[in-house]
Amino acid sequence: MAVDMRLPTVKNSMSLSVSAAGRKDLVVPGDVITSDTGFMRGHGTYVDEDKLTASVAGEVQRVDKLICVRPLKTRFNGEVGDVVVGRITEVQQKRWKVETNSRLDSVLLLSSVNLPGGELRRRSAEDELTMREYLHEGDLISAEVQSVFSDGALSLHTRSLKYGKLGQGVLVQLSPSLIKRQKTHFHNLPCGASIVLGNNGFVWLYPTPRQQEEEAGGFYTSLEPVSLSDREVISRLRNCLLALAAHKVLLYDTSVLYCYESSLQHQVKDILKPEVMEEIVMLTQQKLLEQES
């Protein structure tokens, strides 16, 4: 088998504009943002001897009197209504613990899932005992943020047929800041696969289901073999996502689809080569600009 090997090289970022050099709104920890006391202290700042000081490296954002510093890279800060993809880490009494790339594990209460058998009913002691049959450690789920606790932990719910256990597919873990907030984060792409763009940066790629299984309540997972063509489409999409992420392009259905289309002339395994990656991302950005205007 031919193996492609190369020496490490310095990544030359494309079209690094000089205009951005020396920007004033970039701060590092310990930088004094303002010594004026009329401002409010937001995230990423602290007050040291009456001076508002940055505590993270990033961009200063000012909304009226509130000053925040947004770091370039952080863990997921959940908000109510966010769609997340997560992994079950623990089964406890009446709740599951879910790893969602946030600062504390999220909680999925037994009372906020749709149990198989449909219909609303009381959660009995029996349900508590059989929790592990629905979801056990290592399972992937999609869910929505129901509320945020005072310590920053998230409470999730899967009270809709859209959400629930994820079956066969591919998980891609990216930075949460790359996901564009949209009305819907579930897309059936015309190329033959479906995508869940979790706000927490976890992206789930799976073959488009043929018909909706309604009665299972989101706990049914299909174990049918996935055809080779579907798997190829999914791996191509995965590589496209990684390419877009490497060049910090916002991810949403259109950008992913355009990237997929631009990558069609290359083999799936070649997409991750730096020069091919750059070419594909350039094409995608061109298409996005054309579509905007």
């Binding site: 970022s13 951005a20 920007r23 490296a57 370039l72 060049h247």
Partner: peptide
């Protein structure tokens, strides 16, 4: 270190802005 951080910040913010 300050120089390194500022350099890194600029490179990264340019990429994410485009």
């Amino acid at each position: 270190l300050d120089e390194v951080v500022r350099q890194h910040l600029q490179e990264a913010s340019v990429l994410s802005r485009e």
